[in-house]
């Protein structure tokens, strides 16, 4: 087991080097803001996909309105930045908290619904939130959206230039994904998986299933809200169209393509579905058709996804699981 213990830090360090050194350095070589914008998009959607993964992949709740909570986060951050003159450091946590609060209110009555009914309810809630964003003109400025010019300021220092903004986004996303990783790769995560497999049986195992579902839905919305704030600050403009049903489906497609229940898969899915349309930009506006096609092909031919749950869990256990300490005994399938 000592061999595994030694290797435990390798993959996380490689990933951090990729996100914080290789990627920004390579992008800086191109010297174009556009590439950084795409990189930010990849990071933001990775966070969205991983937060949806927790609800849909791990806990098995088919959620068709995730983009709405992302939208709430974006609007909260943007409106606080413009109307209240409260900057990034206020807007970011507020975006997460308001999104989570909404999710909590929504989850309380709907969490008792099972499978397809739950999916329909989340779809309706997503549509309702989007309708409010579109029509509550007094607050959300309606279809015109909100412009956010202030940019990111951290403790009095303005974060200027695409590289610096990229670093801020990367820090928030990496920290959030680390938290989501701890949640899904833990005994708490196992309890969530048991909800997906057979929630009545989980109930008999002493697990408060309704409470756990509400909890995970709320947590996931919190991170979607954070992603929304990052979107608002990186693009400087939010409008209802960015948070509609097709965006919920885009995020769902990332999770499905990567593999339901697989956290690394969700990231792979996000990278693929953001980069593929950018790479294929020359072919015209095929972006959304691609999303549909990739989703369909993967459901049909790769029902377990590009990086299925079983191999993903084995990968995480082998390469990350030991990071937080050595095994107490020879046995170490568990999480720690």
């Amino acid at each position: 087991m000592s061999e595994i213990t030694r290797k435990g830090w390798v993959v996380p360090v490689l990933l951090l080097v990729l996100v914080f050194a290789v990627a920004p350095f390579t992008l800086a070589q191109f010297g174009k803001g556009y590439f950084f914008q795409v990189a930010n998009l990849v990071l933001i959607f990775s966070l969205l996909a991983v937060s949806l993964h927790l609800v849909t992949g791990v806990a098995g709740l088919l959620h068709l309105g995730h983009a709405a909570f992302y939208g709430i986060g974006a609007y909260v951050a943007a409106l606080m930045g413009t109307d209240l003159k409260l900057g990034f450091l206020w807007g970011l946590p507020a975006a997460g908290l308001v999104a989570a609060l909404f999710a909590l209110v929504v989850a309380l009555p709907t969490m008792r619904l099972v499978s397809i009914y739950f999916a329909v309810a989340t779809l309706a809630i997503g549509q309702m939130i989007n309708t409010v964003l579109l029509n509550w003109v007094a607050v959300t400025k309606g279809p015109n959206g909100v412009m956010l010019f202030s940019g990111i300021k951290l403790f009095g220092f303005a974060v200027k230039g695409p590289l610096a903004v990229y670093f801020v986004v990367a820090v928030v996303v990496v920290a959030s994904i680390w938290v989501l990783h701890r949640l899904s790769h833990s005994y708490y995560g196992n309890a969530l998986r048991s909800l997906r497999e057979d929630d009545q049986c989980a109930d008999a195992m002493g697990i408060d299933t309704v409470r756990l579902k509400i909890e995970v839905f709320t947590l996931s919305a919190f991170f979607a809200g954070l992603a929304g704030a990052l979107w608002a600050y990186t693009t400087g403009y939010v409008s209802p169209g960015d948070f509609n049903f097709s965006n919920s489906i885009l995020i769902l497609a990332m999770v499905v393509v990567g593999g339901l229940g697989s956290l690394p898969g969700a990231i792979v899915g996000a990278v693929l579905l953001i980069l593929l349309p950018e790479v294929l930009r020359g072919l015209g506006d095929l972006r959304n058709v691609m999303v549909g096609l990739v989703m369909f092909v993967s459901i049909l031919f790769l029902p377990k996804g590009l990086f299925g749950e079983v191999s993903a869990l084995a990968f995480v256990r082998r390469n990350l699981g030991v990071k937080w300490g050595a095994a107490p005994s020879e046995r170490e399938v568990g999480w720690r």
């Binding site: 005994y187 708490y188 196992n190 309890a191 998986r193 048991s194 989980a202 195992m205 002493g206 697990i207 568990g334």
Partner: peptide, 8 residues
């Protein structure tokens, strides 16, 4: 089996 442990 760990679900039983977590439940308790």
């Amino acid at each position: 089996v760990s679900v039983g442990s977590v439940g308790a």
